[in-house]
């Protein structure tokens, strides 16, 4: 699914954020990406959803080397990935419903085909009565749930979620985690960047096994 080989990423002159990263995420896997604040979790997520390119090393996504992918193919590849941003990245000029429907619209699907799915998804994440609101009028937690709904609406093969439960209460966090687990059961590979240990524990309680952890520390990844 995703393979990183000797990946290094640096900014400016000599500032190295990630160093010699090597790991392989298999299809259908579930991983937590952990590490202290500023350890490079978001940067690693950005590398995995093709937002930035490494200074050195090789990244393969869906068996394709990222550096060799052209713009149009890159766009098609991104449609197979769902992304939850830490800062939500909802479009303020679209309603919540339109934001969630965006990946399907971009994919060229007809509204009539996905209308009910989007409404159901919003209801499931508890935004059934807020779907016609614009993001500036949503609370932090509501925005986060809308961002998650947008990331999973097209049932991606890979879900990358950066602190997806940072702005919601524990009850909603567990509900959202159940959504990620359900998606994973249907074959979606999931990577959740978090430092919420309760969430990791809850996964263990729910699935009766531990999810492998990618632990970032001083620019290196250790698989725990």
């Amino acid at each position: 699914m995703i393979r990183l080989e000797n990946v290094t990423l640096g900014y400016g002159e000599g500032t190295v954020i990630l160093q010699d990263i090597n790991f392989h995420l298999r299809p259908g896997s579930f991983h937590f990406l952990t590490g202290p604040s500023g350890s490079g979790k978001t940067t690693l997520m950005r590398l995995m959803f093709l937002s930035i390119e490494p200074t050195d090393g090789k990244i393969k996504i869906f068996d394709r080397e990222v550096k060799r992918i052209r713009a149009t193919a890159r766009a098609r590849l991104r449609r197979r990935i769902g992304i939850v941003f830490q800062d939500f990245r909802l479009l303020d000029h679209l309603t919540t419903w339109q934001n969630v429907a965006l990946p399907l619209r971009v994919n060229g699907e007809k509204v009539s085909r996905y209308k009910a799915d989007v409404t159901d998804m919003l209801t499931w994440v508890g935004l059934g009565n807020r779907m016609h609101q614009y993001p500036p009028f949503l609370s932090g937690g509501e925005k986060q749930r809308a961002a998650i709904a947008r990331a999973v609406i097209h049932q991606p093969e890979l879900l990358l979620a950066d602190e997806p439960t940072g702005s919601v209460d524990p009850k909603m966090a567990h509900r959202l985690l159940r959504l990620f687990v359900e998606l994973n059961r249907f074959g979606t590979s999931v990577v959740i960047a978090t430092h919420d240990h309760q969430l990791i524990q809850h996964y263990q309680d729910m699935c009766e096994h531990k999810a492998p952890r990618l632990e970032l520390h001083e620019g290196h990844v250790h698989i725990v």
């Binding site: 098609r76 449609r79 990935i81 971009v106």
Partner: peptide
């Protein structure tokens, strides 16, 4: 710029 970035992330092609 931010809108274009989000569109890129959800898989919009340059044509879109």
């Amino acid at each position: 710029h931010e809108i274009v970035e989000v569109l890129n992330f959800v898989g919009a092609t340059d044509r879109f």
